[in-house]
């Protein structure tokens, strides 16, 4: 692909996942958009043909730094999303799970600590490997595995059983 094609592809493929990922960090949509804009601008100054094989981890790494920067500047600390902050159209219509179940799972995910939500985003939206995630989150590969297992198992248990939603998952 030419650099122009790579940038077009990158924006098409990663715009939404990155805005959503950055929003989780900044806490608001506007700063998240700014962080993503900055990420793509930085990308456009790179040697795109060389970078292409590592596009996803690179974008998430840079986006994370930009978003953390915005968060630091705003002085905001964000641990738990409030109920009203939940995106309304969080889950597109799908036949895989019933709407009700999805709502419940989405609510469970929203109650996860920030780090766990970040892990899920990187894994399921970014399709990144543990190794790539470790580089982005500055954690060891084994720690990424442990944290992700714990998160998935907790969610799975709560989702499959009919337990009422706890205030907060994973202390």
């Amino acid at each position: 692909m030419t650099p122009e094609e790579i940038i077009t592809f990158a924006i098409e493929r990663f715009e939404k996942p990155l805005v959503s990922y950055a929003r989780q960090i900044t806490g608001d949509l506007e700063s998240a958009r700014d962080a993503v804009q900055e990420t793509f601008l930085r990308l456009s100054r790179q040697d795109l043909e060389k970078l292409e094989p590592r596009l996803a981890p690179w974008l998430y790494f840079v986006c994370r730094n930009c978003a953390l920067d915005y968060r630091r500047k705003s002085g905001r600390t964000l641990e738990l999303l409030e109920e009203e902050d939940l995106p309304v159209d969080l889950c597109p219509r799908q036949t895989l799970i019933a709407e009700e179940d999805k709502q419940k799972l989405a609510a469970l995910v929203a109650r996860l600590p920030e780090r766990q939500r970040e892990l899920l985003k990187l894994k399921f939206e970014g399709d990144l490997s543990y190794k790539e995630m470790a580089g982005i989150m500055k954690m060891s590969i084994s720690h990424i595995g442990v944290q992700l297992h714990e998160t998935i198992q907790t969610l799975k248990k709560l989702w499959l059983t009919d337990q009422p939603l706890p205030g907060r998952l994973i202390p």
Partner: peptide, 10 residues
Amino acid sequence: SLRSVTKSTD
């Protein structure tokens, strides 16, 4: 399921 709920329209 997790994959579908972590998707966002932002």
